[in-house]
């Protein structure tokens, strides 16, 4: 694969890797579950309910602990357990990109990642991208270039765009188009998304 090829998902995000890792992770989680629960819980905390798994995730710089069914995806954990609904569920199949988050700096489809697989890794969501009140350059460029319409795919687009810039895959408009093609936008803000990525790149230069 040469360096200008479109992105291959990381092992945790492509379908085959997912199934392999997921079944492994669930098995490990099931076996390790009582131990993990004892190891992670504060002495005063009651153990998780039977069948539940206590998971600690580092999200946007904070450790967050919650009790989950082992089969819970990272996406559903973020949205429904950690009150971070900015990350969106568009397909739950790994086909649309709306659920894109960063795990250890890489773009990952959170609908194809079990929460249990993300323990010990640094997770960044759309809520954690801005530095306080200051928008990330990609966020500001999306506003300025109208890089969205309905806004539903936008968190995923922005997380992909930020990674795309960091990866150095925004050298030309065609390269941006190719490397941003894993994020569907039915409103088709695509030309404006390209303009936003280009603008963020030029402003950061």
């Amino acid at each position: 694969m040469d360096s200008s090829s479109p992105p291959r998902p990381t092992a945790a995000t492509d379908r085959r890797g997912f199934i392999k890792q997921a079944s492994g992770a669930v098995a490990v989680a099931m076996l390790a579950h009582p131990l993990l629960a004892r190891a992670d819980a504060e002495p005063s905390e009651p153990p998780p309910a039977p069948g539940m798994l206590r998971v600690t995730l580092n999200v946007n710089g904070q450790d967050r602990t919650c009790d989950l069914e082992a089969r819970t995806t990272l996406l559903d954990t973020l949205r429904d357990h950690l009150h971070l609904p900015g990350t969106k569920k568009g397909c739950d199949h790994g086909t649309c990109g709306a659920c894109t988050v960063h795990v250890d700096g890489q773009r990952v489809l959170s609908c194809l990642t079990l929460a249990a697989m993300a323990e010990g890794r640094k997770i960044t969501t759309i809520e954690g991208l801005a530095a306080g009140e200051n928008l990330h350059p990609v966020q500001q460029a999306f506003v300025d270039c109208d890089g969205f319409q309905c806004g539903f795919c936008t968190p995923g687009q922005i997380m992909s765009a930020a990674a795309c810039l960091r990866e150095g895959h925004a050298r030309s408009d065609d390269e941006i188009r190719e490397w941003m093609s894993g994020n569907l936008c039915r409103c088709a803000a695509y030309p404006n998304i390209v303009a936003a990525v280009r603008t963020a790149r030029d402003r950061s230069a």
Binding site: L84, P85, G86, T87, T125, I126, E127, L129, A130, L135, Q139, Q140, F142, V143, D144, D146, F148, G151, T154, P155, I158
Partner: peptide, 12 residues
């Protein structure tokens, strides 16, 4: 620019 743009780009 859209008045709801800030909310859309911050996930809020």
């Amino acid at each position: 620019s859209r008045v709801d743009g800030h909310r859309k780009v911050t996930g809020t």
